[in-house]
């Protein structure tokens, strides 16, 4: 399993509470439109992810994150910089 895939699996665990009924999380899952995250939930998600991966997530990356896969790639980069 690649590092990206490991991160993605961990990310699914964090995203699980936001999953809607009948939905299956995948790297294509869109955080806003599919999971319906609003600004408060996005901030909560960032905090949980920071805790889980022991990283600081710059707010600037948010515009580049649309899907769970995008988010996992960003986390991968941030954990490499650590």
């Amino acid at each position: 399993m690649t590092r990206y895939e490991t991160i993605l699996l961990q990310l699914y665990e964090i995203l699980k509470p936001y999953e809607k009924e009948g939905q299956n999380l995948s790297d294509d899952t869109e955080l806003l439109s599919d999971l319906g995250l609003d600004s408060m939930k996005v901030m909560q998600l960032l905090l949980e992810t920071e805790e889980r991966f022991d990283i600081s997530i710059p707010l600037n990356i948010i515009p580049n994150v649309r899907t769970a896969g995008d988010f996992a790639r960003q986390i991968e980069q941030l954990t490499e910089q650590r």
């Binding site: 901030m43 960032l46 905090l47 600081s56 997530i57 710059p58 707010l59 600037n60």
Partner: peptide, 12 residues
């Protein structure tokens, strides 16, 4: 912060 272009990180 957004206008500055700097890397912005929030703390609790």
């Amino acid at each position: 912060c957004r206008m500055s272009g700097a890397e912005v990180i929030r703390f609790h």
